[in-house]
Amino acid sequence: MSAHKQIQSQFYDYIQGGLKSDEHSIIDTHLASCTMCRCKLEELKRFIESPVFSPELPSDKLPPEYWNNFALEVEQKIRTYEIEKREYSLSLWDWLNSLFIFHKRQIIAVSSALTIVCMAITGWLLYVPTLVDEKIALPEISSSQFMEIDQKVGEYLHKSKTLLVGISNLDLEEKSPIDVTAEKKASRNLVQEARYLKNQPLDIRSARLIGDLERIQIELATIKDDAAIPRIEMLREGIHRGNLLFKIRMAESMYEMPRLMNVNNIYSGDRK
């Protein structure tokens, strides 16, 4: 909105004296320098004050008797409304009553069915908490044990990541057979860890990831030296397709892996 339009939108309140003193003085300052707005203000003033557009209230044209009856009519309407409300509740009761008289058998059948349904729901509601309790009661694990499991999962994931990165970085270009003894040994150890962790209470996503990693590690542990290259290529493809390294990184952030853990010892024999 332009400055002129903004000023002009205040003219009505300016004329009627509905502006604050600071707003009033802003308009005064503008009017002092703007002939166009001054003209517009005069036009509006003339229009508002002209007898043609003087606000004449329709209520003034009605006789006092009319207003005396007005409140009484409102009261009458309120009373009618209250009676209607009462009649509605009464008619609802009558309707239910007549329904019971004329359709006694159906009503009994329906109410019996409803009772059975209600009882079934109540029974189910009473039974479900015991099931939940049982589920909760099964693994009685203290918080320190949970922390220990979390730490183990973290370690396992970190070791798995190192192994998978190692596999991904193996140089397969050379035609000579490659030595994967260290990787096989590390995989065997990790399979043991995975089997242990699978029996622990884990969230679904971690359990699924550990399952996927375990399959890769079993493949790697049982690899034959003479067919190592094609198998490793297949495994790499599997790692890539399953987006396993990304999933491990995501899971690691959840388990807060101790950052200073020395993982180089997973290749316990060290590659020579």
């Binding site: 209230l57 329709p58 209520s59 009605l62 207003w67 007005f70 409140a71 409102v74 009261e75």
Partner: peptide, 9 residues
């Protein structure tokens, strides 16, 4: 009602 009826009307 008496106070506000004219305005409402």
């Amino acid at each position: 009602v008496g106070r506000h009826m004219k305005h409402a009307y």
